[in-house]
């Protein structure tokens, strides 16, 4: 076990030297989580907007469900996806287990409800404000949803960033379905868990620093987005 001081020094050296292993892990993390956010946004944004805009029986139940799913524990999602993708599972023939694709699927399932629920909240505020205008213009459901999604674009960007923040920081789901295989499915959070348990604190700390910087960056982006929206009087 290294002492703390040298671990920190080593960690910063790894970051500053752009260590090849480190970079590989970071890039895979970004690839998995960004893809998952993209997919979740493609599903969650229209779904949330639909739940906020359309009036149909069972809508309240759907909203309740989506909100409840927001709190899904990552390990449970990981387990579910594992059961689906394992050899004995219904989707076992896809042979996706322990691949980045499996991790993307798990994270997509994890954050789609988050994006959908937050989108529904954001859009229903906008919808209330625009309702009479839309009626006056005689817009159909599709046009209303598209208009609301566009007009809420700044808020929805922060919603997506929140989804990304959650995806990139979770460890349970990707650990179970990815397996933390070196050079294949090892991402930042799983590496930190592994290296810490192995006592190799330097790599763990280096990844921790990167992960925290990423969180800071995401928050900075959220703030910039908010400020831009305010400047344009679009908030």
């Amino acid at each position: 076990m290294q002492d703390f001081g040298s671990a920190f020094t080593l960690a910063f050296q790894l970051v500053l030297n752009a260590d090849a292993d480190l970079i590989e892990i970071i890039l895979l993390s970004l690839k998995v989580s960004l893809t998952a956010v993209l997919l979740s946004a493609l599903i969650g944004l229209p779904l949330g907007a639909l739940l906020a805009t359309a009036r149909f029986p069972g809508r309240q139940f759907c909203l309740l469900l989506v909100n409840a799913l927001m709190g899904l524990p990552p390990v449970v999602v990981g387990l579910m996806v594992y059961l689906m993708l394992s050899n004995a599972g219904p989707l076992g023939w896809l042979r996706l287990l322990y691949s980045p694709a499996a991790m993307i699927i798990a994270q997509t399932i994890l954050i789609t409800p988050i994006i959908a629920a937050l989108t529904a909240q954001v859009i229903s505020d906008y919808e209330r404000e625009y309702r009479e205008l839309f009626r006056s213009m005689g817009l159909g459901l599709r046009q209303r949803i598209l208009t609301l999604l566009f007009d809420a674009r700044y808020s929805l960007m922060t919603v997506s960033l929140a989804g990304f923040g959650r995806a990139v920081a979770e460890v349970g789901a990707v650990m179970i379905v990815g397996g933390n295989i070196d050079h294949l499915t090892r991402v930042m959070t799983t590496s930190i868990a592994l290296e810490t348990s192995k006592g190799d604190l330097a790599l763990a700390l280096a990844l921790g620093v990167v992960l925290m910087s990423l969180a800071l960056l995401v928050n900075a982006l959220v703030m910039t987005t908010r400020l831009t929206a305010k400047r344009m009087a679009h908030d």
């Binding site: 404000e129 009479e132 205008l133 009626r135 006056s136 005689g138 566009f150 007009d151």
Partner: peptide
Amino acid sequence: TRRREQAMVFQRPVLLRR
């Protein structure tokens, strides 16, 4: 018919965020 033939300017105008 409303869409095609009528329009309204509300007391508090609602402008799109554009």
